[in-house]
Design a protein around this nucleic acid. Structure first.
Length: 162
DNA sequence: GTCCCGATTCTA
DNA sequence: AGAATCGGGACT
């Protein structure tokens, strides 16, 4: 069944862990989420919201359960799911789904770009997340990847299935 | 307007 | 280790 607003509007670390094993659906394509990272609030230096609201990161400040997609390195898009209540900017970066590694490759595979930022995953018919009963056996926690600040936080979570 | 740099990926 | 590649955000 589809994840509701209540799932996303919680503590971001809980949402991040629980997104592992859920299935993202986008325009008929489906993938089981295997790797995520949390970006939490204005005190997290690696979070796009660390220096306040901008046109790009505006959706992070809104209700949980929306998509946040941004363009990076001149050629890749990265997909996030917004978490926490309206007014608290945080999101979970979807770094991988089964058999697709890396956030840039994931968006390319699914055909996701910044025009798909700000979609309400709790009401959209083409973009949402489902619980299909899968539960990861073991979750690995590591520092986040590809950042220069905020490396001290163990906010990367991987479905460590063997 | 200008400048620097990035939540990546691929090649060597 | 370095290149590819360009929009966003800070600053003038």
């Amino acid at each position: 069944m589809r994840l509701s607003r209540d799932f996303f509007e919680r503590n971001t670390l809980d949402v991040a862990r629980e997104l592992l094993g859920k299935f993202m659906v986008f325009n008929g394509k489906v993938g089981r989420i295997t790797e995520v990272e949390a970006y939490i609030g204005q005190d997290d230096p690696a979070c796009h919201a660390a220096r306040g609201m901008t046109p790009r990161n505006r959706v992070m400040f809104g209700q949980g359960g929306f998509s946040y997609v941004y363009f990076i390195y001149g050629m890749y898009h990265c997909l996030n799911f917004v978490t926490e209540r309206e007014g608290f900017p945080a999101a979970v970066l979807i770094r991988g789904v089964e058999s697709v590694s890396g956030p840039g490759r994931l968006c390319k595979t699914f055909g996701i770009d910044k025009t798909h930022s700000g979609v309400d995953l709790c009401t959209s018919d083409s973009f949402y997340v489902e619980d299909r009963g899968y539960k990861p056996a073991c979750i690995k926690e590591t520092p986040r990847i590809g950042i220069k600040v905020g490396k001290d936080k163990m906010w990367r979570f991987i479905d460590d299935a063997i």
